[in-house]
Every structure is written in structure tokens, then in C-alpha cells.
């Protein structure tokens, strides 16, 4: 009896349910670094991801299933194979890479048009803020046309994966949104 009670209880709070989160973005934006910074709390040296990395981590009593998909041009077409059941998307942008902002914008909006992602929340990390000449979050938001987005909870957070700044703020926001949506 006790077990089934706690089962119901947990389900109510979404503790036992895994929350699927995708980390997407162009190559070299810092997706893998963010993933392991979140999981291990340290900076690991990374190589371009051929394929994907997947890690499970506990965050504020929630089980997160985070998929970090490779950002190289050749791998982007396969992102869509992993859209199903996604609660939240973390889109990482290299704030110093001004030249490819339009590419990033294009990829972002194509992705958001997908049927399977209509319910997912979007968190954008304007990453690499530790670098000089990095664009600010507001600037990035403008270039990416985020204001155009309708019917979607979204937020942009300035971050630095190397220093660990901005990541928890961003994730906290994402968790809140997801929890809200699931309680509804």
C-alpha cells in the first residue's frame, strides 16, 4: 500500500518521470562542454561530436535525460530523429561567432517549426561570454528573431560554460516552465 501511495505522489510531482531535454546548436558552440559542466561540474576537453552524447542527471529532485547532438552540418539532418517526447530544448549559440548568426537563426527556426516540438520550451544560451567581443544576450536575441516566437515559452540567458556562469539560472528557468506545464 505504502509503495503505491508514494508512486502516486511521485507521479504527481513528476519525480519518477524522466524529462527529455535536447541540447542543439551549431558546431563549436559549446554544447558538449555545457552537458558535462552540468553533469560533472567540471570542464572536460571535448572533440567535435560525431553523433550524440546522452547523460542522465538529477536536478532538484528531477531526473533529466539530456541529449547533446552534434552540430556539424553533416549531422544536423539527424536532429529530427531525436525530437520525439522532448520537454525542453536548449539552443546554444557561440556569441563571438557573428558571421554564422544567420545560419544559427535559420537552423533554430526550421527546428521550431517541427510538429513534434510544438509543446517544448526553448532556452537559448548566449554562450562564451567570457570571451572578448562577445555579443550580449539582448543582441543575440535580436539577431535570432526570438521576439517573433509565438505560443512558446522561451528565455535567453548569457552564459559561460568554462566559468560555469549562467547555466544554473537557465536550467532553473527551464525546470520551472516544464513543471508548470506538466501540472496543468
Amino acid at each position: 500500500m505504502g509503495q503505491s501511495f508514494s508512486g502516486i505522489f511521485n507521479r504527481l510531482w513528476g519525480v519518477n518521470k524522466e524529462i527529455r531535454i535536447l541540447i542543439l546548436g551549431l558546431d563549436g558552440a559549446g554544447k558538449t562542454t555545457i552537458l558535462y559542466r552540468l553533469q560533472l561540474g567540471t570542464v572536460v576537453t571535448t572533440k567535435p561530436t560525431i553523433g550524440f552524447n546522452v547523460e542522465t542527471l538529477k536536478y532538484n529532485n528531477l531526473t533529466l535525460n539530456i541529449w547533446d547532438l552534434g552540430g556539424q552540418t553533416s549531422i544536423r539532418p539527424y536532429w529530427r530523429c531525436y525530437y520525439n517526447n522532448t520537454a525542453g530544448i536548449i539552443f546554444v549559440v557561440d556569441s563571438t561567432d557573428r558571421e554564422r548568426m544567420d545560419v544559427a537563426c535559420q537552423e533554430l527556426h526550421t527546428m521550431l517549426k517541427e510538429e513534434e516540438l510544438q509543446e517544448s520550451a526553448l532556452l537559448v544560451f548566449a554562450n562564451k561570454q567570457d570571451q572578448p567581443k562577445a555579443m550580449t544576450a539582448a543582441e543575440v536575441s535580436k539577431v535570432l528573431d526570438l521576439t517573433e516566437l509565438k505560443d512558446r515559452s522561451w528565455s535567453i540567458v548569457a552564459s559561460s560554460a568554462i566559468k560555469g556562469e549562467g547555466l544554473t539560472e537557465g536550467l532553473d528557468w527551464l525546470m520551472d516552465v516544464i513543471k508548470d506545464e506538466q501540472l496543468q
Binding site: 560525431i50 553523433g51 549531422i75
Partner: peptide, 12 residues
């Protein structure tokens, strides 16, 4: 096709 997608996971 596209079996390269698991490369990173295997290497890890």
C-alpha cells in the same frame, strides 16, 4: 544508413 551517429557514444 547514417550509422556514424553512434560514433561519439561508442567512443565514450
Amino acid at each position: 544508413q547514417d550509422i556514424l551517429m553512434v560514433t561519439a557514444s561508442i567512443m565514450k
